[in-house]
């Protein structure tokens, strides 16, 4: 999303211009995401070779690893938007940051969940206090803190700014936390069998994983844009353009829902 905004940063930093642009982009990102998801899952589950040690069960990494990547990437992007929002007082950036959080938390949870399912056949237990899983769990806590703070504050502007500050504090702490947890893990368990990738991974596997990552990425963009559009309507509801936009079509859509 960052690259897209940099094209016409100032133009689209205005909610009024952002709203219709986002609306036009959403279907494309959905289409792209679904296509990539189908291709990625097909490659992961049918094309990629069976692992000689782990058998078929390893295939969950085609979801697990991209989800874990996305969970971290989204936190970074979220903090980036938070910094922009606080430093330049851009409401669009604030809204982007808060719209990213639920998706980030979802991917974190997905990574933990798939990690547990992969752990059962691999280690014989659903949960191990492995460095990556533990870090992922702490990341989930950070997301939960962010979302809870935001939903506990009634005033939307204060909520956005307070949670942005929290995201910045979190992103500064994140490397320290990761590093501490890794260190703690090596101390207590020796060399850990972490759910990483084999050093020599088949190129089919890598491709499938990259395709899945892009599928998740485009999905994130689509969902976040949808969420931001809704926030824009809520937070800009005193402006004339939102009133003009909401005025007529709103009744139509509420009728549509009744049917």
């Amino acid at each position: 999303m960052a690259f897209k905004n940099s094209i016409a940063w100032y133009y689209f930093s205005s909610p009024k211009n952002f709203y219709p642009m986002a609306g036009r982009l959403i279907p494309w990102f959905w289409a792209l995401s679904i296509t990539l998801l189908v291709v990625g899952l097909y490659m992961g589950f049918f094309v990629a070779p069976t692992d000689y040690k782990q058998g078929e069960s390893y295939r969950i990494i085609f979801i697990h690893v991209p989800a874990a990547w996305m969970s971290m990437l989204i936190y970074l992007v979220m903090a980036g938007y938070a910094i922009i929002g606080l430093a330049w007082k851009l409401r669009m950036a604030e809204m982007m940051a808060s719209a990213l959080a639920p998706t980030g938390a979802m991917f974190t949870f997905l990574a933990l969940w798939t990690g547990a399912f992969w752990g059962k056949p691999t280690w014989g237990t659903y949960w191990v206090w492995d460095a990556r899983l533990t870090s992922e769990l702490i990341l989930l806590f950070l997301y939960i803190g962010y979302i809870s703070l935001q939903s506990a504050i009634d005033d939307p502007r204060r909520a956005a700014r307070a949670s942005a500050l929290l995201a910045i504090v979190g992103v500064i702490n994140l490397p320290v936390i990761y590093w501490s947890v890794t260190w703690w893990n090596t101390l207590h368990q020796g060399a850990s069998v972490s759910p990483g990738m084999e050093p020599k991974m088949a190129s089919d596997m890598l491709t499938a994983m990259m395709v899945m990552t892009f599928a998740f990425w485009t999905y994130t963009i689509a969902v976040v844009l949808m969420r931001v559009r809704r926030t824009v309507l809520e937070r800009e509801n005193q402006t004339s353009w939102v009133k003009a936009l909401v005025g007529a079509p709103k009744e139509k859509s509420s009728e549509g829902e009744k049917q």
Binding site: F141, I144, G145, S148, L149, V169, N173, S180, W183, W184
Partner: peptide, 13 residues
């Protein structure tokens, strides 16, 4: 919720 995850490095060391 906000603070405890950030305490973890201090706890570990």
């Amino acid at each position: 919720l906000l603070v405890l995850p950030l305490y973890i490095p201090v706890l570990i060391f």
